[in-house]
Design a protein around this nucleic acid. Structure first.
Lengths: 214, 214
DNA sequence: GATGATGTAAGGAAATCTACTACATAAAAA
DNA sequence: TTTTTATGTAGTAGATTTCCTTACATCATC
C-alpha cells in the first residue's frame, strides 16, 4: 500500500521540505501541496489523499477551518495538524475539527512519518508536549467555553479576514456575499466578543491564533 | 566538490525537511542542524560548513545576530537567511550582518538549492520579492534606519494610540489637538510605513513593540 | 411548534476616511 | 546664507464605512 499524502502549508519552502522527507520514505508519497485552506479543500476533493498534513496558520482560510471542512465533506481522509505552538486552544479546536494528529514544527522530521503511519491505522498521534496537554484537557475541562468557540464558522472566517486587513467589500467578494451580510457578521462578532473596534479585533485574532503577525 | 551545509532553524521539522531536500541533491550534503543562534555559532565553529542556511527568527540569539557573529569569526562561511516575511527591515539588517542570500519560506524548495549554488560561487541570491526590495533600498534608503525611527515623536505617539484602539477623536482630545491634525499624522504614518489600514498598523505596532497584546 | 442560533440582506443616519491644500517653524542641506 | 525638507498644526469636501435596526428563512432543539 502506498499512502497518498497532501501537504498544506503557506510556506512552500516548508512544504517542499516535508515532501522531500516523506518521499524519501517507502510506503508513502506526496501527491500535492496546497498553500492555503481553500486550496487544501479543493485539492483534497480532487486528489483524494489518504492523509493531509496541514499547517494551522494559513491565510484566507486557516488550517483548522479547512480541517473542519475536509472532515465534514470527506470523512475518510485523516488529517494531521502541524503547528508552531502547543497552545491548548489550538489543540482543542483542531481535535474538535476532526484532526487525528497534532505535531509541532519544533519536533523531529521523522515525527511526521510516524504520525502518518499512526493516523492511517486509525490511531491518534501527538507530539509529546501536545499529548500532555490533550490529557490535561480531557481531565478538567468544563466544556470549552473559550471565546472563539462562541463564534459560528462564518463568524470566525470573517474575523480572520478582518484581522488580515481585508475590507468589508473585499470579504464580501471573497465569500460571494453582500457587504451588508459581512457587516452583520462583524456586528455579531463585536457583540459576542465584546469588542468595539478593529484594533481590538486584530488583537483578539492574534491572541487566539486565528491569524499571525507578518 | 561536496558542499557541506549547516541548517539553523528552531523548528526541527523544518530543518529536517530542508535537510531531506538538500541531501536529495548531488554535490551538497547537510552536516548538521542547529536550533538557535548560539547553537548555530557553535556548530559553525566545530563543523566548518561551506554554507549556513539560517532562519531569521530563532529563540535566544536570532538569526541575524548569529549571522553577524559567524561572519565576523569565520568570514569564509557563506550565509543564506531564510525568512517568513519580506520585511525591508530584516532584509537590510541581514545583509548588513553579512548574509549572502535571503530567501522566503513561501518560495519553492528548489530556491534553497539555487541559493546554495549561487552563494558558493560568491554571488548574492535573493527570492524575487526580496530582490525588488533590495534594489529599492539601495536606491532611496538613508542607511540602516529601522522603520520606527522614520517617524517623528508625535507620529509614534499617534501610532501607539491608534494601535491601542483609540479613535481619532479620542486621540485629539488626549493630545489637545484637532482631529484633523491626528488624521494628518495617521496619513503620514501610513505613508512612511507603507501601511494601508488599521489592522496592518496594529500588526506593525505589535511587531515593533510599540504596544503589546493584552 | 415555539425558541434560539445562524446565514443572509437592506435602509438610513452618523461618523470616519481619503485626498488635497495650507502655513509656520525648525532643521538640514546646498 | 539661502533653499529645501521635515514637522506640527488644521481645514474643506466628497467618498466610504460604520452603526443600529429590522427582516426573514432555515435548522436544530426543547
Amino acid at each position: 500500500m502506498n499512502l497518498k499524502i497532501l501537504i498544506a502549508d503557506d510556506h512552500q519552502m516548508v512544504s517542499d521540505g516535508l515532501a522531500a522527507l516523506i518521499d524519501a520514505q517507502s510506503g508513502m508519497s506526496v501527491i500535492g501541496c496546497a498553500t492555503n485552506g481553500v486550496d487544501a479543500l479543493a485539492k483534497a476533493k480532487q486528489l483524494r489523499p489518504d492523509v493531509v498534513v496541514m499547517d494551522v496558520s494559513m491565510p484566507e482560510m486557516n488550517g483548522i477551518e479547512a480541517t473542519q471542512e475536509i472532515h465534514n465533506r470527506l470523512p475518510t481522509i485523516r488529517i494531521i495538524m502541524l503547528s508552531m505552538h502547543s497552545s491548548p486552544e489550538y489543540i482543542h479546536r483542531a481535535l474538535q475539527a476532526g484532526a487525528m494528529g497534532y505535531i509541532l514544527k519544533r519536533s523531529a522530521g521523522k515525527e511526521v512519518v510516524k504520525a502518518i503511519e499512526q493516523v492511517t491505522a486509525g490511531k491518534h498521534f501527538f507530539s509529546e508536549a501536545v499529548a500532555e496537554i490533550v490529557v490535561e484537557q480531557s481531565l478538567h475541562r468544563p466544556a470549552g467555553v473559550d471565546a472563539v468557540s462562541l463564534l459560528s464558522a462564518r463568524e470566525r472566517q470573517v474575523l480572520q479576514l478582518l484581522a488580515e486587513s481585508h475590507s468589508i467589500v473585499r470579504i464580501a467578494e471573497l465569500l460571494s456575499l453582500s457587504p451588508k451580510t459581512i457587516e452583520t457578521y462583524r456586528a455579531r462578532i463585536y457583540e459576542k466578543l465584546a469588542l468595539r473596534d478593529l484594533p481590538q479585533l486584530v488583537r483578539f485574532a492574534l491572541k487566539h491564533g486565528l491569524t499571525s503577525l507578518d
